[in-house]
Structures are given as C-alpha cells and as structure tokens.
Design a protein around this nucleic acid. Structure first.
Lengths: 359, 359
DNA sequence: TTGTACGCGTTATCAG
DNA sequence: CTGATAACGCGTACAA
C-alpha cells in the first residue's frame, strides 16, 4: 500500500512556484491570473493529482454542498424511486446526498434529522413518521436550513412534494360507486404511521358518503400479515359483505389479490380491487392491477428542485400537488349480484378485525 | 426566521467559563475533568443547543466519518435493498452514507467515485459497470481508502459481497435438465453492462453442456422491450423451439411470463421459467415465480461489515460467497412433448435476435 | 486538572 | 495581477 497522502492546494502552489491564493484563484476560476500562471498551476495540479478537500472548503465557506435525505425505508421501492429522483435532479448541481432511513420509527426519525444537522447539510429532503412532532426539524428551520418534504400532504409551514391523497381517494370511491358497489373496504398497513394512508382513508370515506355508499370498512393489517397470503386470506374471509376494496398501496393490492384467489374469490367478479402508487410490476400481473398511478420519482425531483431554488437564496415555495391518474386494469368490475345476495345474509357488523379508531 | 448561527465549542467554553480544550474533553469524554467542570460544560452545551461541526472535525481528524455508496440505480429494488442493508449495518457506527447512482453509465461510474473521493469518504461500497476499468477506484486504493464491492464476482484484488452467480446458474440448468428439457434459453437485459449477468450465462451454458442439453439460446433485449410486453412477446415468438427459459432477473421473468400469456403459451406447460433474485412480489403472482432466491440486503450488510472491519485497522478480507436457494414456484414443469414436437419442425437456427458475442 | 496555541485545507481580504 | 495572512471549528500537544 503506497499510502500517498493527498496533495493539498499548498502543494500545488509550491510546485507551481506561486502563492496559495493564486493557486486557489486559478483552480476555482475565481479571480484574475496571467496565462502563464494559469498554465503552471494547472500543470502542477494535474501532476500531483490534486483534488479539493471538501472538509476544508466546507469549514471556510460554511456550506457543505451536501443535502440530507431521510426516508422511512429504501426497501420500499416508492421511497427508493423518490430518492432516485432527488439524485437525478441534484446531479450536476454539485450537491451530494447524505442518506438516512428511519425504518418507520418515530424516534429514529428525529435523531436522523439531528445527525444530518451535525453533518452540516445545507438542506433537508424528508419523508417522516411525524414531521410535525420533530424537534430536530424545528431546529433546522431555526438554523435557516431549508426543508422540503416528500409524500406528505401540506403541513404547518412545511413545503412538500405530494399528490393530493384525499382527492385521489375520492376518485376511487367514485369509480366504485359508478359501477354499483355499495359495500366497500379500505385496506391499510399500520395505519397510524402514515399520514398519507390516513388521508386516503379520509378522502375515500368522505366520497363514499357523498356517493351514497355505506361507510367503508377499515381493515388494518400488520406487516407480517401482509407478507403471508394465508393470514391475509383468513382476515379477508371475515369481510364477505364487501364487493370492492381500496388498498392503500399496490403491494397490499397484489397481496390481497392473491389472498382472494386462495379463498377462491374471483377478482374482479367477486371482489374488485384498486391499488395506490402505480408500481410497474402491477401492469404485468395476470389481471393487471387497477390503480391510482403516481410518480414517486417526480416527487423526489420536485422536492429537490424546490430545495435547489431555496438554496439559491430565493425562498421555499409550496408548489401545487403533483398529478395522479387512474390506471385502468383488470381488477375492477361491477359487483356480482349473485354473490353479494348470497353473502349479505350471513354478513356481520362491518368493522370487526382491528377495531381501532380511525384517526 | 431567527437565523441563529450554530453554537461552536468556543461558545460552550465561554458560557461554561472554561478553556476550549476542557470543553472538548468533556463533550468527547476524551480526557480528565472535574465533576464540577463536567456539569458546567454539559449545562452550557445543552443551553446553547450545541452540536458538533462535522467539517471542523473532519478537517482536524482527517476522517469524515462518511462512507461513499455507489449503485447503478435505486429504481432497481435489488440495489435499493442492498443500500438499505448497508444503512442498517452502519447504523450506530457513527458513519454516514453518501450516496450516488451511475444509471448504469460507465463514465458516470468513474466520476461518481471521484466525487466521493473529493468528499473525503473514509471508505467506499460500490456496484459498478466496470470496476476493473475505473481509474478513480484505483486512486482510492492508492490513497489507502478501503473499497468493498457488492454483487460483483471476485475481481482483481477487490473484496466483494456476492452470490456465486456461476454456481447458481448451474443449479438452474440442472433443474431444467432433470425435468427433461433439451432446448433452453437465457434472457438478459443489456448483457454487456453486468458481469453478474455474464457469469450467470456462463454457468448456465457450462452446465447445459455438462448435462447434455443444447447450448442455451441467448436472448438479449433492451430496457424498452422489457417494459413493453407486446414487444417482448414479438421477440419471444421467434423462439418457439425452447421449452424453458432462464431469466437473468425476476422482473424479466415476470415480464416474459406476461409475454407468454399474450402469445397464449401456458406457463409452465408450454414454457418453464426460472428467475433470479427472489424478489418478494414473485411469491404473490398467480403462478408464483420459480427462482433463485438471494438476499440483496445481506450483500449490503456484508459489504458494510467488511468495510467497518477494515476501518478499524484490521485488513479487508474476502468472505465466502453468500448463500442462495432454489425457490419452488409454479413456473417450472416438464416440457410439453406435444408442443415441442409440433414446433420443433418449424424451428430456426437458435440465436437470431441480437446475434451478439457472449462476452 | 486545566488552558493556550497550533494546524488541518480552504477561501477571502487586503496590501503590494 | 500576485501573495501573505486571517479566519472557519475542532482536537490535541504541551505548558501551567
């Protein structure tokens, strides 16, 4: 291991036979320099394999050229794609991404932001469990560090890149209603950890009322249950009365589709399913998933754009929500009158499973 | 915006009425201090909301406590999960992750590493298009910065966290052979940009020979074709002679399954399919995907462990390949003798589509 | 046990 | 046009 200590600007100046300031000016193209000097410095720099030291720069300029990015998890492709969008947008701006995952943990959420702050990030892009309860986020605001949220609906004075979950969920209820569904359900994962999910439920609920449907049955399941189709099937079996289900995300929609198959319920004849997010693989299923299509990558891009804008001294401005679209698929159809009539007789009170408050 | 400039250790010392060194020793628990001093300093620090400045620290200690992580893309869940593994393993170690994506671009690959180097990362974890051709990676080695690869098969003197792609691919060929398949294919995406894919082909090819099968037909497609089932179907239609297909990753396997459906080929009766990676959603398909199951997260974890180990002064050591397993599913069956007989007559020379060299 | 002073690599100021 | 020099925040010899 040769272990050459990296060359500093001082080394460059020495080799070029000039002062440090001159070397700095040339290398940064930030001031006047004679052609001769310029050449000598550039030559020296390339000979030494010189490379700026970010720490020194950060210390003196008080800017780290680093953006902190906090997401619940990268194992969820929705967030991974959002980060990819951030990365794409930041490319060429000179900013680097310092990444952090909270694993959907409230406390980790907050300490992660603190850690980013310690690392002198110039800005923060985040999706959190509870941005409104994060003291560290408050600290960031106080320090004048711009913060841009992703996925969250507008909140406090925080700027966010989002789709209007409430409105999108209304659309789902409207579709169900138009086809004649009367008893519908909402399937969500760990309801309390996501304001997106809550807002989707709220919109769905509101529009169900407006369309004259019964209040939607809330079915909340754990992560484990979501991953084990047989467990999910057992839960689903308790809700024979519903003819259509709105799943809070596409993975749940796919999982519940399998659970329904295991119960020998035909999708969409016996049960219609609409998902949320619009992941790519949904298109490739035997019955392509009907879903609300969004673009996580676009959220990341917009959040990054807003931040870049703010970093240039112009303020942080809340942009309008990003568009979503209803993607036709093979999991939505009118209710099967035969099945609903048969089952309606045996139907039990609507909210059974995790009898939990909906807020 | 109050815009309070962050408190420095100097401020803490002033408020606590002591010297900077004392404050530093207390805050770092790195030296002696009287109980009284300790209290005063800690009190002052918390009052001021003091928080270390990473740049100052990095400059003086010549360590940034930052790990650079380069992957082709976060839009591919395999890499996203790997990064998640890295993150999980690094949690609590004090190291932060600086992330970068190359978008499968050879040049971006190299400049990304350079950028990480400029940012003084203490170590690098990467999956690249061509690690062996990266001058920046060489530079890192020269500087004594430990590098740990992910997914790549062992290479040069580079440590890597991987599964043995060759051996895993042999397993696939063996399964096909055992069921009586004779003409098989290998489906890959942009073959040349991934040594993993190449090694899988090599292992598959070798074992096909060893098992007395015909040399596998190489079917290489573009990303666009992979995303459009109808295009993929058109390509697949040219290969009626093969009865089994090894897809280089699960997404391709799922896509080709849809393409086969569109052609009204039954899976697995008319065409057996085995994938690679073992993504979760494969289990939820109507015909659960038969595949080689790997754990990208484990690769990330192992790469991070190796790096942490090296960062503690112990050397970088190459660990044995990570395990994979054959996951049973519903897309593998013996060949349908009827169909193969019918079609074999019309079969054309085996490699038609992107007649490209296999290296 | 405590405090002073220096240097890490950089940029900016200001005098030549 | 050029070159000393003073910060930036921190850790740490070294001196008290």
């Amino acid at each position: 291991m040769p272990q050459t200590p990296p060359a500093t600007i001082k080394d460059v100046a020495r080799v070029a036979g000039c002062g440090i300031a001159t070397a700095s000016r040339v290398l940064n193209k930030s001031g006047p320099a004679s052609t001769k000097m310029r050449e000598r410095v550039e030559r020296a720099a390339s000979d030494l394999g010189f490379c700026f030291n970010a720490a020194g720069r950060a210390l003196q300029s008080r800017r780290s050229m680093t953006i902190g990015c906090l997401v619940p998890s990268l194992a969820n492709p929705v967030f991974a794609e959002a980060v990819q969008g951030v990365q794409a947008e930041l490319l060429g701006s000179g900013y680097q991404i310092l990444i952090s995952c909270s694993n959907y943990d409230d406390a980790a959420d907050n300490t992660s932001i603190s850690t980013l702050l310690e690392n002198n990030v110039d800005g923060i892009i985040a999706t959190m469990v509870a941005p409104d309860r994060s003291t560290a986020l408050l600290q960031a605001k106080q320090r004048g560090i711009p913060v841009s949220l992703m996925f969250h609906d507008p909140l406090d004075g925080l700027v966010t890149a989002y789709v209007d979950n409430f409105v999108a969920a209304c659309e789902v209820a409207r579709r169900f209603a138009a086809l004649g569904h009367r008893r519908v359900g909402f399937l969500a994962l760990r309801f309390s950890t996501s304001d997106r999910s809550r807002n989707r439920y709220a919109g769905f609920h509101a529009q169900c009322r407006a369309s004259g449907l019964a209040d939607p049955t809330l079915i909340e399941i754990s992560e484990v249950e979501a991953r084990h189709p047989e467990q999910l099937a057992a839960i689903l079996a308790r809700y024979r009365d519903i003819t259509a289900l709105f799943a809070s995300n596409d993975f749940l929609a796919i999982a519940v589709q399998k659970a329904a198959r295991d119960l020998e319920w035909k999708v969409p004849q016996d049960l219609s399913i609409i998902g949320f997010d619009g992941i790519e693989v949904g298109r490739l299923l035997e019955a392509p998933l009907t879903t609300i299509e969004t673009s996580p990558e676009a959220m990341g891009r917009q959040a990054a754009q807003s931040l870049l804008h703010a970093l240039q001294g112009l303020g942080l401005v809340q942009l309008p929500p990003l568009p979503f679209s209803f993607r036709e698929g093979g999991t939505l159809a009118p209710p099967n009158p035969k099945r609903t009539d048969d089952d309606r007789v045996a139907a039990q009170p609507s909210s059974v499973h995790p009898a939990q408050d909906q807020n």
